[in-house]
Design a protein around this nucleic acid. Structure first.
Lengths: 234, 234
DNA sequence: GCAGAACGGAATAAACCGTTCCGTTTGCCG
DNA sequence: CGGCAAACGGAACGGTTTATTCCGTTCTGC
């Protein structure tokens, strides 16, 4: 029985797993990965685009997730978990706190994980678990910032809430070519972090840093981008 | 026929004009302004959202523009013209070229004009006029950068194409509160420009600056965000 | 062989959206 | 004053897009 199987995705390591089961396992990953790429490019992309990008049919997707919303939640949760992992990894084991902070930011930016938690926000209902993960992520980032700050490596008017804003700005850099995107982000990461460094003769940054409420703004508003603007009335 | 007069663009001056004509004049401005706000928030917002935000009916909008596309083109052209005006205004009359550059960037960012030309790109067919305006805008920006660079105010590996990328990053900062948005943008404008300043002991920025082709990427692709990915076929 | 897990993709039903149409209001002019 | 037409508001229309369901097919494991 020369297993002629698996017309799909022939390049991706057919492995020792045999046939259908193996395909299923690979599809698990392919779908998640495709969803990541597609939704990162366009948060409102149709589900069919994910299936196409994953090289599977729509039913393969719906077999795994009850609906689009659950897929997005999964994506977001995974992103948050990655964020936490990166943060923990850079939390210590680095003599210089400034370098630790910079490497941490680079890690998050390379993982392209911030967009997952923010650009997707508002396109699905957040679950309690998501909230907890986000809280933990925030705490870890805060700690890494604090260490650098207390070591005197940052300008006096730098603030922990500047970090998410830096993510935001670097995340805005997105070209078709993924490698080039990463390279450019590194470039401006250097510029930004250099601007945040402590230095003499620098005048104070204008205005207060973002407040936590301001940073959290994104999570509210399901989408309501079009309707009654300020807030019509219930 | 017998168009009595040109109701368009009365200079946003509602004044003592009486009745219907005055309302029309005010609507001209209200619609354009609302469109700006709405499409800046969400480039794919429905036309109805603009009408609602402007506090007018849909027909008031369609009386002025043949369709959505023309409205977007108008918006983009206005944005480009503003860009050019700001650039010309900061092009000289400023002794220090670095300050001139920074003020120029601040002017563009405050006018929120970059998003108009880039976030909207790909949502409508560009006209030849738009192309010319964009070219002129680019040239002006380049000149302002060059003056600062040649004066030695910028780090040696800074590049003119870094400027659009800075716009891009600052434009990504967008809160509900417009004033706060501007304030935060000023904050990171300071950080970024400080990072771009010439200084000793700075290691080189990693990787090459963005190429002009990379910056122009946005204009191609009508939308095709979901379908054949790399580029299906003509 | 056979039962059924997994699939691919067409079919479906419900939005969503740009644009048109129609009835109404309201200055202006004779 | 009466009538005309510029301006409007917003419902109605038709096309398109999308999430989700359904069904026939293909393999696997036994």
């Amino acid at each position: 029985m020369s297993t002629p199987r698996d017309l799909r995705d022939p390049g991706a390591y057919a492995g020792p797993l045999s046939g259908r089961r193996a395909q299923a396992a690979r599809n698990d990953h392919a779908i998640l990965s495709a969803a990541r790429t597609v939704f990162l490019q366009n948060p409102h992309a149709p589900v069919a685009a994910v299936a196409t990008a994953a090289g599977v049919g729509i039913s393969a997707l719906y077999r795994r997730y009850p609906g689009k919303e659950q897929l997005l939640q999964q994506l977001c949760a995974d992103g948050l978990r990655t964020f936490i992992a990166v943060a923990e990894q850079h939390s210590d084991a680095q003599p210089d706190p400034f370098t630790a902070l910079k490497e941490f930011v680079r890690g998050i930016v390379d993982a392209d994980v911030h967009a997952l938690t923010v650009k997707l926000a508002g396109t699905f209902a957040p679950t309690p678990e998501l909230g907890e993960l986000a809280a933990r992520a925030g705490t870890l980032a805060q700690e890494i910032f604090n260490r650098a700050f207390e070591a005197g490596a940052l300008r006096a008017d730098a603030d922990a809430n500047d970090i998410p804003m830096i993510f935001e700005q670097l995340t805005a850099i997105r070209l078709r070519d993924e490698a080039r995107t990463a390279a450019l982000r590194h470039r401006y990461l250097d510029v930004l972090m250099d601007g945040l460094r402590s230095k003499q003769g620098a005048e104070a940054l204008p205005g207060p840093p973002p407040s936590s409420e301001e940073l959290g703004e994104r999570w509210i508003v399901p989408d309501a981008i079009m309707d009654g603007w300020p807030s019509p009335s219930p």
